[in-house]
Amino acid sequence: MSNLLYGLLSLGAFALLAGLILAIAQKLFRIEGDPMADKIDALLPQTQCGQCGFPGCKPYATAVAGGEADVNHCVPGGEKTMLQIADLMGVEPKALEEEAAAPRIAFVREDECIGCTLCIKACPVDAIVGAPKQYHTVIVDHCTGCELCIEPCPVDCIDMLTKPELIEHWSWPLPDTKRSQLAHQRRGQHAGHA
Protein backbone atom coordinates (compact mmCIF):
# COMPACT_ATOMS: atom_id res chain seq x y z
CA MET A 1 0.00 0.00 0.00
CA SER A 2 2.69 2.47 0.99
CA ASN A 3 4.57 1.47 -2.15
CA LEU A 4 1.62 2.50 -4.28
CA LEU A 5 1.39 5.76 -2.33
CA TYR A 6 5.09 6.45 -2.79
CA GLY A 7 4.71 5.71 -6.50
CA LEU A 8 1.74 8.03 -6.95
CA LEU A 9 3.31 10.81 -4.89
CA SER A 10 6.70 10.68 -6.56
CA LEU A 11 5.21 10.52 -10.05
CA GLY A 12 2.82 13.34 -9.25
CA ALA A 13 5.56 15.49 -7.77
CA PHE A 14 7.82 14.87 -10.74
CA ALA A 15 5.07 15.69 -13.22
CA LEU A 16 4.32 18.90 -11.31
CA LEU A 17 7.98 19.88 -11.39
CA ALA A 18 8.22 19.23 -15.13
CA GLY A 19 5.04 21.24 -15.75
CA LEU A 20 6.39 24.16 -13.71
CA ILE A 21 9.66 24.24 -15.67
CA LEU A 22 7.80 24.11 -18.96
CA ALA A 23 5.48 26.94 -17.93
CA ILE A 24 8.47 29.13 -17.11
CA ALA A 25 10.10 28.12 -20.41
CA GLN A 26 7.01 29.11 -22.34
CA LYS A 27 7.11 32.61 -20.85
CA LEU A 28 10.82 32.82 -21.64
CA PHE A 29 10.55 31.71 -25.24
CA ARG A 30 7.53 33.74 -26.25
CA ILE A 31 7.60 34.78 -29.91
CA GLU A 32 6.58 38.27 -31.05
CA GLY A 33 5.31 38.83 -34.58
CA ASP A 34 5.65 36.34 -37.36
CA PRO A 35 9.23 35.95 -38.62
CA MET A 36 8.10 33.40 -41.21
CA ALA A 37 5.94 36.01 -42.95
CA ASP A 38 8.95 38.30 -43.34
CA LYS A 39 11.05 35.47 -44.76
CA ILE A 40 8.37 34.56 -47.29
CA ASP A 41 7.92 38.22 -48.20
CA ALA A 42 11.63 38.41 -48.99
CA LEU A 43 11.17 35.69 -51.64
CA LEU A 44 8.30 37.43 -53.44
CA PRO A 45 9.00 39.70 -56.45
CA GLN A 46 7.23 42.73 -54.86
CA THR A 47 5.19 43.44 -57.96
CA GLN A 48 2.20 44.29 -55.66
CA CYS A 49 -0.08 43.26 -58.51
CA GLY A 50 -2.71 41.42 -56.49
CA GLN A 51 -2.91 38.46 -58.87
CA CYS A 52 -2.54 36.14 -55.88
CA GLY A 53 -5.86 37.36 -54.54
CA PHE A 54 -4.31 39.39 -51.73
CA PRO A 55 -3.84 43.19 -51.69
CA GLY A 56 -0.07 43.13 -52.01
CA CYS A 57 2.89 40.87 -51.37
CA LYS A 58 3.10 41.23 -47.59
CA PRO A 59 -0.55 40.18 -46.99
CA TYR A 60 0.03 37.09 -49.18
CA ALA A 61 3.20 36.25 -47.28
CA THR A 62 1.37 36.54 -43.97
CA ALA A 63 -1.41 34.30 -45.26
CA VAL A 64 1.04 31.63 -46.43
CA ALA A 65 2.92 31.77 -43.11
CA GLY A 66 -0.33 31.33 -41.27
CA GLY A 67 -1.20 28.37 -43.43
CA GLU A 68 -4.26 30.10 -44.88
CA ALA A 69 -2.99 30.34 -48.46
CA ASP A 70 -1.35 27.90 -50.82
CA VAL A 71 2.21 28.40 -52.00
CA ASN A 72 1.34 28.53 -55.69
CA HIS A 73 -0.60 31.78 -56.02
CA CYS A 74 2.18 34.18 -56.98
CA VAL A 75 1.98 34.61 -60.78
CA PRO A 76 4.90 36.99 -61.46
CA GLY A 77 7.12 34.92 -59.21
CA GLY A 78 6.41 31.85 -61.24
CA GLU A 79 7.61 28.34 -60.54
CA LYS A 80 10.88 29.49 -59.01
CA THR A 81 9.18 31.46 -56.24
CA MET A 82 6.68 28.67 -55.63
CA LEU A 83 9.51 26.17 -55.13
CA GLN A 84 11.36 28.54 -52.82
CA ILE A 85 8.29 29.13 -50.65
CA ALA A 86 7.51 25.41 -50.57
CA ASP A 87 11.10 24.71 -49.53
CA LEU A 88 10.95 27.32 -46.77
CA MET A 89 7.60 26.12 -45.45
CA GLY A 90 8.63 22.49 -45.72
CA VAL A 91 5.60 21.53 -47.82
CA GLU A 92 5.25 19.77 -51.13
CA PRO A 93 5.51 22.02 -54.19
CA LYS A 94 2.23 22.61 -55.98
CA ALA A 95 1.80 23.34 -59.66
CA LEU A 96 0.94 26.90 -60.61
CA GLU A 97 -2.57 27.56 -61.84
CA GLU A 98 -1.64 30.00 -64.55
CA GLU A 99 1.54 30.54 -66.51
CA ALA A 100 3.55 33.69 -65.81
CA ALA A 101 3.76 35.90 -68.89
CA ALA A 102 7.03 37.40 -70.12
CA PRO A 103 7.93 40.51 -68.11
CA ARG A 104 6.27 43.61 -69.57
CA ILE A 105 6.54 47.34 -69.02
CA ALA A 106 3.68 49.83 -69.19
CA PHE A 107 3.92 52.61 -71.76
CA VAL A 108 1.74 55.73 -71.88
CA ARG A 109 0.93 57.11 -75.32
CA GLU A 110 1.46 60.68 -74.28
CA ASP A 111 -0.32 62.21 -77.30
CA GLU A 112 -3.57 60.70 -76.07
CA CYS A 113 -3.05 61.36 -72.36
CA ILE A 114 -5.62 63.71 -70.81
CA GLY A 115 -3.82 64.26 -67.50
CA CYS A 116 -6.44 62.71 -65.20
CA THR A 117 -3.88 61.17 -62.72
CA LEU A 118 -6.01 58.03 -62.32
CA CYS A 119 -3.13 55.78 -63.38
CA ILE A 120 -0.74 57.57 -61.03
CA LYS A 121 -3.04 56.82 -58.12
CA ALA A 122 -3.39 53.20 -59.20
CA CYS A 123 0.33 52.41 -59.47
CA PRO A 124 1.43 50.50 -56.33
CA VAL A 125 5.10 51.51 -56.65
CA ASP A 126 4.72 55.17 -57.80
CA ALA A 127 6.28 54.38 -61.17
CA ILE A 128 4.22 56.92 -63.11
CA VAL A 129 5.14 60.60 -62.98
CA GLY A 130 2.80 63.41 -63.87
CA ALA A 131 0.44 65.98 -62.48
CA PRO A 132 -3.19 67.04 -63.13
CA LYS A 133 -3.56 68.38 -66.70
CA GLN A 134 0.08 67.39 -67.43
CA TYR A 135 1.29 64.43 -69.46
CA HIS A 136 1.88 61.23 -67.53
CA THR A 137 4.77 58.92 -68.26
CA VAL A 138 6.05 55.60 -66.90
CA ILE A 139 9.50 55.36 -65.30
CA VAL A 140 10.77 52.27 -67.12
CA ASP A 141 13.23 51.22 -64.39
CA HIS A 142 10.54 51.29 -61.70
CA CYS A 143 7.66 49.58 -63.49
CA THR A 144 6.97 46.05 -62.21
CA GLY A 145 4.50 45.11 -64.97
CA CYS A 146 1.56 44.57 -62.60
CA GLU A 147 -0.92 46.08 -65.12
CA LEU A 148 -2.99 47.85 -62.43
CA CYS A 149 -2.78 51.12 -64.41
CA ILE A 150 -4.47 49.77 -67.56
CA GLU A 151 -8.03 49.67 -66.25
CA PRO A 152 -8.34 53.09 -64.60
CA CYS A 153 -7.23 54.95 -67.76
CA PRO A 154 -10.41 56.54 -69.24
CA VAL A 155 -8.90 56.95 -72.75
CA ASP A 156 -7.16 53.55 -72.81
CA CYS A 157 -3.80 55.08 -73.75
CA ILE A 158 -1.56 52.67 -71.85
CA ASP A 159 0.08 49.70 -73.60
CA MET A 160 1.98 46.79 -72.10
CA LEU A 161 5.17 46.29 -74.08
CA THR A 162 7.64 43.41 -73.77
CA LYS A 163 10.72 44.31 -71.81
CA PRO A 164 13.67 44.73 -74.21
CA GLU A 165 16.49 42.24 -73.73
CA LEU A 166 19.74 44.04 -73.03
CA ILE A 167 23.06 42.56 -74.12
CA GLU A 168 24.50 43.46 -70.71
CA HIS A 169 21.88 41.24 -69.06
CA TRP A 170 22.30 38.27 -71.40
CA SER A 171 23.45 35.08 -69.73
CA TRP A 172 24.51 31.69 -70.99
CA PRO A 173 21.74 29.10 -71.26
CA LEU A 174 22.03 25.61 -69.81
CA PRO A 175 24.32 23.62 -72.09
CA ASP A 176 22.56 21.10 -74.26
CA THR A 177 23.92 17.65 -73.57
CA LYS A 178 23.84 16.93 -77.25
CA ARG A 179 26.51 19.44 -78.06
CA SER A 180 26.58 18.79 -81.75
CA GLN A 181 22.87 19.44 -82.02
CA LEU A 182 23.37 22.77 -80.32
CA ALA A 183 26.07 23.80 -82.75
CA HIS A 184 23.90 22.96 -85.76
CA GLN A 185 20.92 24.71 -84.22
CA ARG A 186 22.86 27.88 -83.67
CA ARG A 187 24.20 27.84 -87.19
CA GLY A 188 20.72 27.42 -88.62
CA GLN A 189 19.25 30.13 -86.35
CA HIS A 190 21.61 32.68 -87.57
CA ALA A 191 20.59 34.46 -90.76
CA GLY A 192 23.65 36.68 -90.99
CA HIS A 193 23.99 40.18 -89.57
CA ALA A 194 25.61 43.20 -91.21
Binding site: L22, A25, I31
Partner: peptide, 16 residues
Protein backbone atom coordinates in the same frame (compact mmCIF):
# COMPACT_ATOMS: atom_id res chain seq x y z
CA UNK B 1 8.88 20.24 -25.29
CA UNK B 2 11.54 22.54 -23.88
CA UNK B 3 13.85 22.22 -26.88
CA UNK B 4 10.92 22.67 -29.24
CA UNK B 5 10.07 26.02 -27.69
CA UNK B 6 13.72 27.07 -27.78
CA UNK B 7 14.12 26.22 -31.48
CA UNK B 8 10.86 27.91 -32.38
CA UNK B 9 12.18 31.08 -30.79
CA UNK B 10 15.75 31.04 -32.02
CA UNK B 11 15.30 29.69 -35.56
CA UNK B 12 11.80 29.56 -37.05
CA UNK B 13 13.26 28.33 -40.34
CA UNK B 14 14.81 25.31 -38.64
CA UNK B 15 11.59 24.74 -36.74
CA UNK B 16 9.71 24.71 -40.04
Amino acid sequence: QFIEMMIHKTSPVLYQ
